[in-house]
Amino acid sequence: MIKENNIKFIFLSLSLLLIILIFFFPFFWIITSSFKSPEEIIATSTTIIPRSFTLEHYNKILFNSDFFIYLKNSLIVSFSSMIISIILSVSAAYGLHKLKFYGNKFVEYSLLVTYAFPGVILLVPIYLLFAKVNLLNSYFALIIVNVLFATPFAVWMLKAFFKLIPNEIEEAAYIDGASRYIVISRIIIPLAAPGIASVSIFCFIISWTEYLFASILISGDNLKTLPVGLAGIVGQYQIDWGFLLSGAVLASLPVILLFVFIGKYFVSGLTEGAVK
């Protein structure tokens, strides 16, 4: 027994070390680097603990670029995509889970299989299609696409959360004469709330990080999202690494802040909510 615990301990320490090095250290390095002087960032002798400290990169990006416009756009697009995705997926997941209708398995698998059509394939046709219906250069263009990428997986995750809700509760409500609408809004949604929260965050992240479509479907500066804006403020012939790094940190900061407040729901929602 003691021996096994020792092995366990060694395994645990090793994997912890590995995880910290691989998954956390890059962030430490990038964040500290974004405060380094330009000379130190590109120096051939790389420093892990910074030797210099400057806010010039942040100053430049916050006050000399359209950062806040990009931020606003990303927030609008991501929140709207999230809300629409959640409404559509909750409805679909409930339908798939509780109402066993003809073709439900087919729909369920087909949803997952939508990922079989790579974004690159859809790019040009979607551009042409959106041009026809006058959707180019609008938030809605991006929202439509983001919902497409987020919902299939969202439905699958939600379905798993719904499965955890004991049938008796629902049954009891019906016996008391509740309508389907009441059952969903008063019982299903509140009970699956942690799960819905984590799925919402998933949808938000998918929209927040989307690059390809945002770069093609939007051409006006006033509608660009953060990833596209960030890619654009870097010149073609020169790279201002400090600028780029502080931009990278700032582009991540909003989601990280979001995570400070609701991250634990995401993780606990996912991990305790038993995806089955």
Binding site: I19, F23, I205, Y211, P227, S252, V255, F259, G263
Partner: peptide, 11 residues
Amino acid sequence: IILSFIIPTVV
């Protein structure tokens, strides 16, 4: 741990 998933690809 999810940090690397929530940041934009560009980052």
